[in-house]
Write a protein that binds this DNA or RNA. Structure first.
Lengths: 205, 205
DNA sequence: CGGCTAGTTGAAGCGAGATTCAAATACGGA
DNA sequence: TCCGTATTTGAATCTCGCTTCAACTAGCCG
Protein backbone atom coordinates (compact mmCIF):
# COMPACT_ATOMS: atom_id res chain seq x y z
CA UNK A 1 0.00 0.00 0.00
CA UNK A 2 1.16 3.47 -0.74
CA UNK A 3 2.28 5.60 2.14
CA UNK A 4 -0.65 7.12 3.96
CA UNK A 5 -1.04 10.85 4.24
CA UNK A 6 -3.23 13.32 6.02
CA UNK A 7 -6.29 14.63 4.28
CA UNK A 8 -4.76 18.04 3.58
CA UNK A 9 -1.46 16.68 2.27
CA UNK A 10 -3.15 14.16 0.05
CA UNK A 11 -5.43 16.78 -1.43
CA UNK A 12 -2.42 18.88 -2.36
CA UNK A 13 -0.82 15.82 -3.95
CA UNK A 14 -3.98 15.15 -5.89
CA UNK A 15 -4.24 18.69 -7.18
CA UNK A 16 -0.74 18.34 -8.50
CA UNK A 17 -1.40 14.91 -9.95
CA UNK A 18 -4.56 16.13 -11.64
CA UNK A 19 -2.64 19.00 -13.18
CA UNK A 20 -0.01 16.67 -14.59
CA UNK A 21 -2.63 14.23 -15.85
CA UNK A 22 -4.57 16.98 -17.61
CA UNK A 23 -1.45 18.22 -19.32
CA UNK A 24 -0.88 14.75 -20.69
CA UNK A 25 -4.41 13.76 -21.58
CA UNK A 26 -6.28 16.99 -22.04
CA UNK A 27 -8.31 19.15 -19.72
CA UNK A 28 -11.55 17.39 -20.53
CA UNK A 29 -10.39 14.03 -21.81
CA UNK A 30 -8.58 13.14 -18.61
CA UNK A 31 -9.72 9.99 -16.79
CA UNK A 32 -10.03 9.25 -13.13
CA UNK A 33 -7.59 6.37 -13.40
CA UNK A 34 -4.98 8.55 -15.03
CA UNK A 35 -5.13 10.97 -12.14
CA UNK A 36 -4.96 8.11 -9.68
CA UNK A 37 -1.95 6.64 -11.42
CA UNK A 38 -0.23 10.01 -11.51
CA UNK A 39 -0.75 10.27 -7.75
CA UNK A 40 0.38 6.70 -7.16
CA UNK A 41 -3.03 5.68 -5.84
CA UNK A 42 -6.10 3.82 -7.00
CA UNK A 43 -9.27 5.41 -8.29
CA UNK A 44 -11.09 4.62 -5.07
CA UNK A 45 -8.63 6.64 -3.03
CA UNK A 46 -9.02 9.64 -5.31
CA UNK A 47 -12.77 9.45 -4.96
CA UNK A 48 -12.43 9.22 -1.22
CA UNK A 49 -10.87 12.69 -1.20
CA UNK A 50 -12.85 14.15 -4.09
CA UNK A 51 -16.25 12.47 -4.47
CA UNK A 52 -16.88 14.94 -7.29
CA UNK A 53 -14.03 14.83 -9.77
CA UNK A 54 -14.96 18.18 -11.27
CA UNK A 55 -14.10 19.87 -8.02
CA UNK A 56 -10.59 18.46 -8.15
CA UNK A 57 -10.12 19.57 -11.73
CA UNK A 58 -11.26 23.08 -10.92
CA UNK A 59 -8.85 23.30 -8.01
CA UNK A 60 -6.06 22.04 -10.23
CA UNK A 61 -6.77 24.66 -12.86
CA UNK A 62 -6.97 27.31 -10.21
CA UNK A 63 -3.60 26.31 -8.83
CA UNK A 64 -2.10 26.22 -12.31
CA UNK A 65 -3.25 29.75 -13.06
CA UNK A 66 -1.98 30.99 -9.76
CA UNK A 67 1.41 29.51 -10.52
CA UNK A 68 1.41 31.04 -14.00
CA UNK A 69 0.60 34.48 -12.65
CA UNK A 70 3.05 34.32 -9.76
CA UNK A 71 5.81 33.28 -12.10
CA UNK A 72 5.24 36.37 -14.22
CA UNK A 73 5.23 38.66 -11.23
CA UNK A 74 8.45 37.15 -9.96
CA UNK A 75 10.20 37.71 -13.27
CA UNK A 76 9.69 41.45 -13.18
CA UNK A 77 10.06 41.90 -9.47
CA UNK A 78 13.66 43.05 -9.58
CA UNK A 79 13.49 45.15 -12.74
CA UNK A 80 13.20 48.88 -12.40
CA UNK A 81 13.40 50.20 -15.97
CA UNK A 82 9.79 50.41 -17.25
CA UNK A 83 10.71 49.61 -20.85
CA UNK A 84 12.61 46.52 -19.82
CA UNK A 85 9.82 45.57 -17.47
CA UNK A 86 7.29 45.77 -20.27
CA UNK A 87 9.39 43.64 -22.60
CA UNK A 88 9.99 41.00 -19.97
CA UNK A 89 6.32 40.91 -19.10
CA UNK A 90 5.31 40.40 -22.71
CA UNK A 91 7.78 37.58 -23.07
CA UNK A 92 6.63 35.88 -19.89
CA UNK A 93 3.04 35.80 -21.09
CA UNK A 94 3.87 33.65 -24.07
CA UNK A 95 4.57 29.92 -24.07
CA UNK A 96 8.22 28.87 -24.38
CA UNK A 97 7.24 26.82 -27.39
CA UNK A 98 4.52 24.49 -28.68
CA UNK A 99 5.09 22.08 -25.81
CA UNK A 100 4.78 24.55 -22.96
CA UNK A 101 2.54 22.55 -20.66
CA UNK A 102 1.11 25.37 -18.62
CA UNK A 103 -0.03 27.53 -21.49
CA UNK A 104 -1.32 24.51 -23.36
CA UNK A 105 -3.66 23.80 -20.49
CA UNK A 106 -4.83 27.40 -20.44
CA UNK A 107 -5.64 27.12 -24.14
CA UNK A 108 -7.69 24.02 -23.56
CA UNK A 109 -9.53 25.83 -20.86
CA UNK A 110 -10.31 28.62 -23.27
CA UNK A 111 -11.89 26.09 -25.58
CA UNK A 112 -14.01 24.66 -22.79
CA UNK A 113 -15.05 28.05 -21.41
CA UNK A 114 -17.90 28.33 -23.89
CA UNK A 115 -19.64 25.37 -22.25
CA UNK A 116 -18.31 25.64 -18.71
CA UNK A 117 -19.11 28.70 -16.65
CA UNK A 118 -16.59 27.95 -13.94
CA UNK A 119 -13.72 27.71 -16.39
CA UNK A 120 -14.97 30.85 -18.09
CA UNK A 121 -14.87 32.70 -14.79
CA UNK A 122 -11.38 31.46 -13.97
CA UNK A 123 -10.09 32.72 -17.30
CA UNK A 124 -11.90 36.01 -17.03
CA UNK A 125 -10.35 36.62 -13.64
CA UNK A 126 -6.90 35.76 -14.96
CA UNK A 127 -7.40 38.11 -17.90
CA UNK A 128 -8.42 40.97 -15.65
CA UNK A 129 -5.50 40.43 -13.32
CA UNK A 130 -3.10 40.54 -16.21
CA UNK A 131 -4.68 43.73 -17.46
CA UNK A 132 -4.12 45.31 -14.06
CA UNK A 133 -0.53 44.14 -14.09
CA UNK A 134 0.10 45.82 -17.44
CA UNK A 135 -1.74 48.95 -16.36
CA UNK A 136 0.54 49.35 -13.40
CA UNK A 137 3.62 49.06 -15.60
CA UNK A 138 2.22 51.49 -18.15
CA UNK A 139 1.13 54.11 -15.65
CA UNK A 140 4.35 53.93 -13.71
CA UNK A 141 6.34 54.29 -16.90
CA UNK A 142 4.23 57.25 -17.96
CA UNK A 143 4.53 58.94 -14.58
CA UNK A 144 8.30 58.74 -14.80
CA UNK A 145 8.37 60.10 -18.32
CA UNK A 146 9.44 56.90 -20.06
CA UNK A 147 6.15 56.33 -21.84
CA UNK A 148 3.86 58.72 -23.66
CA UNK A 149 0.62 56.80 -23.76
CA UNK A 150 -1.35 57.39 -26.95
CA UNK A 151 -4.41 55.68 -25.47
CA UNK A 152 -5.73 55.19 -21.97
CA UNK A 153 -3.85 52.57 -20.03
CA UNK A 154 -6.78 50.18 -19.78
CA UNK A 155 -7.16 50.01 -23.55
CA UNK A 156 -3.47 49.39 -24.08
CA UNK A 157 -3.32 46.82 -21.31
CA UNK A 158 -6.32 44.93 -22.62
CA UNK A 159 -4.91 44.84 -26.12
CA UNK A 160 -1.54 43.66 -24.86
CA UNK A 161 -3.10 40.81 -22.92
CA UNK A 162 -5.33 39.97 -25.87
CA UNK A 163 -2.35 39.84 -28.21
CA UNK A 164 -0.34 37.59 -25.98
CA UNK A 165 -3.33 35.30 -25.53
CA UNK A 166 -3.89 35.03 -29.24
CA UNK A 167 -0.25 34.43 -30.10
CA UNK A 168 -0.12 31.89 -27.33
CA UNK A 169 -2.76 29.90 -29.19
CA UNK A 170 -0.82 30.28 -32.42
CA UNK A 171 2.40 29.03 -30.86
CA UNK A 172 0.67 26.07 -29.24
CA UNK A 173 -0.83 25.23 -32.64
CA UNK A 174 2.67 25.20 -34.12
CA UNK A 175 2.09 28.06 -36.51
CA UNK A 176 4.98 27.75 -38.99
CA UNK A 177 5.73 31.47 -39.17
CA UNK A 178 4.95 32.57 -35.61
CA UNK A 179 7.32 31.39 -32.92
CA UNK A 180 7.80 33.01 -29.50
CA UNK A 181 10.40 35.52 -30.75
CA UNK A 182 8.27 36.58 -33.68
CA UNK A 183 5.24 36.93 -31.37
CA UNK A 184 7.17 39.15 -28.96
CA UNK A 185 8.19 41.32 -31.89
CA UNK A 186 4.60 41.62 -33.12
CA UNK A 187 3.30 42.59 -29.71
CA UNK A 188 6.16 45.04 -29.24
CA UNK A 189 5.23 46.63 -32.55
CA UNK A 190 1.92 47.55 -30.97
CA UNK A 191 3.45 48.49 -27.64
CA UNK A 192 5.79 50.94 -29.36
CA UNK A 193 2.90 52.74 -31.01
CA UNK A 194 0.99 52.85 -27.76
CA UNK A 195 3.81 53.99 -25.48
CA UNK A 196 5.96 56.07 -27.81
CA UNK A 197 8.98 54.21 -26.47
CA UNK A 198 11.35 52.36 -28.85
CA UNK A 199 11.37 49.37 -26.47
CA UNK A 200 14.68 47.91 -27.53
CA UNK A 201 15.30 44.54 -25.96
CA UNK A 202 18.34 44.70 -23.69
CA UNK A 203 19.21 41.14 -24.61
CA UNK A 204 19.16 40.07 -21.03
CA UNK A 205 16.39 37.53 -21.04
CA UNK B 1 -36.78 3.70 -42.82
CA UNK B 2 -35.47 7.11 -43.61
CA UNK B 3 -35.36 8.17 -47.21
CA UNK B 4 -32.37 6.72 -49.01
CA UNK B 5 -29.82 8.96 -50.60
CA UNK B 6 -26.80 8.67 -52.82
CA UNK B 7 -23.41 8.35 -51.22
CA UNK B 8 -22.41 11.92 -52.09
CA UNK B 9 -25.65 13.48 -50.90
CA UNK B 10 -25.62 11.58 -47.66
CA UNK B 11 -22.07 12.56 -46.91
CA UNK B 12 -22.99 16.22 -47.32
CA UNK B 13 -25.94 15.69 -44.99
CA UNK B 14 -23.69 14.05 -42.46
CA UNK B 15 -21.15 16.85 -42.55
CA UNK B 16 -23.92 19.26 -41.78
CA UNK B 17 -25.37 17.05 -39.07
CA UNK B 18 -21.97 16.61 -37.47
CA UNK B 19 -21.50 20.36 -37.43
CA UNK B 20 -24.82 20.92 -35.71
CA UNK B 21 -24.16 18.12 -33.24
CA UNK B 22 -20.74 19.53 -32.34
CA UNK B 23 -22.20 22.95 -31.74
CA UNK B 24 -24.64 21.44 -29.29
CA UNK B 25 -22.42 18.94 -27.54
CA UNK B 26 -18.89 20.20 -28.00
CA UNK B 27 -16.23 19.56 -30.60
CA UNK B 28 -14.71 16.69 -28.70
CA UNK B 29 -17.55 15.56 -26.48
CA UNK B 30 -19.89 14.82 -29.34
CA UNK B 31 -21.16 11.22 -29.65
CA UNK B 32 -21.83 9.11 -32.67
CA UNK B 33 -25.48 8.72 -31.74
CA UNK B 34 -25.94 12.47 -31.50
CA UNK B 35 -24.66 12.91 -35.02
CA UNK B 36 -26.87 10.08 -36.24
CA UNK B 37 -29.91 11.58 -34.59
CA UNK B 38 -29.13 15.00 -36.03
CA UNK B 39 -29.00 13.39 -39.47
CA UNK B 40 -32.15 11.35 -38.88
CA UNK B 41 -30.30 8.07 -39.16
CA UNK B 42 -28.93 5.36 -36.91
CA UNK B 43 -25.35 5.04 -35.80
CA UNK B 44 -24.78 2.13 -38.18
CA UNK B 45 -25.66 4.24 -41.19
CA UNK B 46 -23.26 6.96 -40.13
CA UNK B 47 -20.49 4.42 -39.77
CA UNK B 48 -21.33 2.99 -43.16
CA UNK B 49 -20.39 6.33 -44.72
CA UNK B 50 -17.62 7.28 -42.31
CA UNK B 51 -15.98 4.19 -40.82
CA UNK B 52 -13.63 6.60 -39.08
CA UNK B 53 -15.60 9.22 -37.20
CA UNK B 54 -12.64 11.55 -36.93
CA UNK B 55 -12.65 12.00 -40.67
CA UNK B 56 -16.24 13.21 -40.56
CA UNK B 57 -15.50 15.64 -37.78
CA UNK B 58 -12.55 17.08 -39.65
CA UNK B 59 -14.64 17.57 -42.77
CA UNK B 60 -17.33 19.24 -40.70
CA UNK B 61 -14.85 21.65 -39.15
CA UNK B 62 -13.39 22.36 -42.53
CA UNK B 63 -16.81 23.18 -43.94
CA UNK B 64 -17.61 25.35 -40.93
CA UNK B 65 -14.47 27.41 -41.38
CA UNK B 66 -15.11 27.79 -45.05
CA UNK B 67 -18.56 29.12 -44.27
CA UNK B 68 -17.19 31.51 -41.66
CA UNK B 69 -14.62 32.90 -44.06
CA UNK B 70 -17.01 33.17 -47.00
CA UNK B 71 -19.51 35.01 -44.85
CA UNK B 72 -16.90 37.62 -43.98
CA UNK B 73 -15.89 38.10 -47.58
CA UNK B 74 -19.50 38.50 -48.63
CA UNK B 75 -20.07 41.22 -46.05
CA UNK B 76 -17.40 43.50 -47.45
CA UNK B 77 -17.92 42.61 -51.10
CA UNK B 78 -20.05 45.64 -51.93
CA UNK B 79 -18.19 48.19 -49.80
CA UNK B 80 -15.72 50.48 -51.52
CA UNK B 81 -14.59 52.88 -48.79
CA UNK B 82 -11.48 51.31 -47.18
CA UNK B 83 -12.19 52.69 -43.71
CA UNK B 84 -15.71 51.32 -43.74
CA UNK B 85 -14.42 48.06 -45.14
CA UNK B 86 -11.96 47.73 -42.30
CA UNK B 87 -14.56 48.42 -39.66
CA UNK B 88 -17.01 45.94 -41.14
CA UNK B 89 -14.32 43.31 -41.38
CA UNK B 90 -13.35 43.71 -37.75
CA UNK B 91 -16.96 43.41 -36.68
CA UNK B 92 -17.52 40.30 -38.79
CA UNK B 93 -14.59 38.52 -37.16
CA UNK B 94 -16.15 38.68 -33.74
CA UNK B 95 -18.98 36.53 -32.41
CA UNK B 96 -22.42 38.14 -32.23
CA UNK B 97 -22.49 37.28 -28.56
CA UNK B 98 -21.63 34.50 -26.11
CA UNK B 99 -23.94 32.08 -27.91
CA UNK B 100 -22.56 32.51 -31.42
CA UNK B 101 -22.36 28.88 -32.44
CA UNK B 102 -19.81 29.18 -35.19
CA UNK B 103 -17.21 31.08 -33.22
CA UNK B 104 -17.78 28.91 -30.19
CA UNK B 105 -16.81 25.90 -32.22
CA UNK B 106 -13.70 27.65 -33.48
CA UNK B 107 -12.72 28.38 -29.88
CA UNK B 108 -13.12 24.75 -28.94
CA UNK B 109 -10.94 23.84 -31.86
CA UNK B 110 -8.28 26.23 -30.60
CA UNK B 111 -8.29 24.40 -27.32
CA UNK B 112 -7.89 21.04 -29.02
CA UNK B 113 -5.20 22.23 -31.42
CA UNK B 114 -2.46 21.63 -28.87
CA UNK B 115 -3.17 17.91 -28.99
CA UNK B 116 -4.48 17.53 -32.51
CA UNK B 117 -2.26 18.38 -35.44
CA UNK B 118 -5.05 18.36 -37.98
CA UNK B 119 -7.10 20.88 -36.06
CA UNK B 120 -3.99 22.95 -35.54
CA UNK B 121 -3.37 23.03 -39.27
CA UNK B 122 -6.96 23.99 -40.03
CA UNK B 123 -6.77 26.94 -37.63
CA UNK B 124 -3.38 28.01 -38.89
CA UNK B 125 -4.67 28.08 -42.43
CA UNK B 126 -7.70 30.09 -41.39
CA UNK B 127 -5.49 32.55 -39.53
CA UNK B 128 -3.24 33.05 -42.53
CA UNK B 129 -6.17 33.56 -44.86
CA UNK B 130 -7.59 36.20 -42.59
CA UNK B 131 -4.24 37.94 -42.43
CA UNK B 132 -4.18 38.08 -46.24
CA UNK B 133 -7.68 39.45 -46.25
CA UNK B 134 -6.70 42.28 -43.93
CA UNK B 135 -3.50 42.93 -45.83
CA UNK B 136 -5.45 43.46 -49.02
CA UNK B 137 -7.71 45.98 -47.33
CA UNK B 138 -4.79 47.80 -45.74
CA UNK B 139 -2.69 47.99 -48.86
CA UNK B 140 -5.57 49.09 -51.03
CA UNK B 141 -6.48 51.76 -48.52
CA UNK B 142 -2.88 52.94 -48.39
CA UNK B 143 -2.54 53.00 -52.17
CA UNK B 144 -5.58 55.25 -52.41
CA UNK B 145 -4.31 57.57 -49.72
CA UNK B 146 -6.86 56.67 -47.05
CA UNK B 147 -4.40 54.96 -44.75
CA UNK B 148 -0.91 55.92 -43.68
CA UNK B 149 0.47 52.64 -42.41
CA UNK B 150 2.79 53.06 -39.46
CA UNK B 151 3.95 49.45 -39.72
CA UNK B 152 4.20 46.96 -42.56
CA UNK B 153 0.85 45.54 -43.59
CA UNK B 154 1.64 42.01 -42.50
CA UNK B 155 2.36 43.10 -38.94
CA UNK B 156 -0.82 45.13 -38.72
CA UNK B 157 -2.89 42.38 -40.29
CA UNK B 158 -1.52 39.74 -37.95
CA UNK B 159 -2.19 41.88 -34.93
CA UNK B 160 -5.71 42.63 -36.08
CA UNK B 161 -6.50 38.96 -36.55
CA UNK B 162 -4.88 38.14 -33.22
CA UNK B 163 -6.95 40.77 -31.46
CA UNK B 164 -10.23 39.58 -32.91
CA UNK B 165 -9.33 36.00 -32.04
CA UNK B 166 -8.56 36.88 -28.46
CA UNK B 167 -11.63 39.02 -27.95
CA UNK B 168 -13.67 36.27 -29.53
CA UNK B 169 -12.58 34.00 -26.72
CA UNK B 170 -13.41 36.68 -24.17
CA UNK B 171 -16.90 37.18 -25.56
CA UNK B 172 -17.58 33.45 -25.67
CA UNK B 173 -16.45 33.26 -22.03
CA UNK B 174 -19.00 35.94 -21.15
CA UNK B 175 -16.46 38.48 -19.96
CA UNK B 176 -18.55 40.97 -17.99
CA UNK B 177 -16.84 44.07 -19.35
CA UNK B 178 -16.06 43.00 -22.92
CA UNK B 179 -19.01 42.60 -25.26
CA UNK B 180 -18.86 42.71 -29.07
CA UNK B 181 -19.19 46.52 -29.23
CA UNK B 182 -16.47 47.07 -26.69
CA UNK B 183 -14.23 44.60 -28.51
CA UNK B 184 -14.71 46.39 -31.82
CA UNK B 185 -13.78 49.63 -30.11
CA UNK B 186 -10.63 48.12 -28.61
CA UNK B 187 -9.50 46.69 -31.91
CA UNK B 188 -10.29 49.96 -33.67
CA UNK B 189 -8.13 51.76 -31.15
CA UNK B 190 -5.20 49.79 -32.47
CA UNK B 191 -6.29 50.09 -36.09
CA UNK B 192 -6.38 53.88 -35.77
CA UNK B 193 -2.81 54.01 -34.55
CA UNK B 194 -1.70 51.66 -37.30
CA UNK B 195 -3.51 53.30 -40.21
CA UNK B 196 -3.59 56.94 -39.18
CA UNK B 197 -7.27 56.98 -40.10
CA UNK B 198 -9.93 58.04 -37.56
CA UNK B 199 -12.09 55.08 -38.59
CA UNK B 200 -15.43 56.47 -37.52
CA UNK B 201 -18.18 53.89 -37.72
CA UNK B 202 -20.79 54.96 -40.28
CA UNK B 203 -23.48 53.35 -38.17
CA UNK B 204 -24.66 51.20 -41.02
CA UNK B 205 -24.17 47.73 -39.62
C1' DC C 1 0.97 -2.90 23.53
C1' DG C 2 -3.57 -3.01 21.60
C1' DG C 3 -7.56 -0.85 19.85
C1' DC C 4 -9.49 2.80 16.89
C1' DT C 5 -9.99 5.30 12.89
C1' DA C 6 -8.86 7.34 8.65
C1' DG C 7 -6.97 6.16 4.43
C1' DT C 8 -6.50 2.75 0.91
C1' DT C 9 -7.21 -1.32 -1.88
C1' DG C 10 -9.27 -4.41 -5.25
C1' DA C 11 -12.88 -6.68 -7.14
C1' DA C 12 -17.64 -6.75 -8.57
C1' DG C 13 -21.28 -4.57 -10.99
C1' DC C 14 -23.14 -0.79 -13.85
C1' DG C 15 -23.98 1.91 -17.75
C1' DA C 16 -22.97 4.42 -21.79
C1' DG C 17 -21.32 4.39 -26.07
C1' DA C 18 -18.81 2.08 -29.97
C1' DT C 19 -18.77 -1.70 -33.07
C1' DT C 20 -20.42 -5.52 -35.74
C1' DC C 21 -23.37 -7.77 -38.81
C1' DA C 22 -27.26 -10.43 -40.59
C1' DA C 23 -31.61 -9.11 -42.15
C1' DA C 24 -34.67 -5.85 -44.24
C1' DT C 25 -35.76 -2.58 -47.78
C1' DA C 26 -35.77 1.22 -51.10
C1' DC C 27 -34.43 2.42 -55.49
C1' DG C 28 -32.23 2.24 -60.21
C1' DG C 29 -31.75 -0.25 -64.28
C1' DA C 30 -33.01 -3.96 -67.55
C1' DT D 1 -42.39 -5.30 -63.61
C1' DC D 2 -38.83 -7.51 -61.20
C1' DC D 3 -33.90 -8.17 -60.01
C1' DG D 4 -29.69 -6.73 -57.91
C1' DT D 5 -27.48 -4.03 -54.99
C1' DA D 6 -26.44 -0.04 -52.16
C1' DT D 7 -28.21 1.72 -48.11
C1' DT D 8 -30.20 1.37 -43.63
C1' DT D 9 -31.79 -0.85 -39.54
C1' DG D 10 -31.75 -2.96 -34.97
C1' DA D 11 -30.20 -6.05 -31.94
C1' DA D 12 -26.25 -8.43 -30.01
C1' DT D 13 -21.72 -7.81 -28.38
C1' DC D 14 -17.77 -5.57 -26.80
C1' DT D 15 -15.17 -2.09 -24.33
C1' DC D 16 -13.99 0.86 -20.98
C1' DG D 17 -14.39 3.92 -17.30
C1' DC D 18 -17.08 5.09 -13.26
C1' DT D 19 -19.06 3.72 -8.88
C1' DT D 20 -19.60 1.08 -4.82
C1' DC D 21 -18.17 -1.24 -0.89
C1' DA D 22 -16.44 -4.79 2.20
C1' DA D 23 -12.03 -5.90 3.67
C1' DC D 24 -7.49 -4.53 4.88
C1' DT D 25 -3.80 -1.78 7.16
C1' DA D 26 -0.86 2.05 8.66
C1' DG D 27 -0.28 5.11 12.07
C1' DC D 28 -1.98 7.50 16.27
C1' DC D 29 -3.40 7.78 21.00
C1' DG D 30 -4.34 5.97 25.43
Amino acid sequence: MTQRKSKADRRLDLIDAAHRAMIQHGAEGVHLNQIAEEAGLTSGAVLYHYPDLRELLIEAHHAGMERFYERRMRKISGVSDPAEKLIITIRSGLPDGPDDAGVRLLCELGGAAGRNRVYATLLTTLFDRQVSMYQTILETGAAHGFFTLTQDSETIARNLVALEDAYGYRIIARHHSIDPDRAVELILDYARLATGNPLRPTDRR
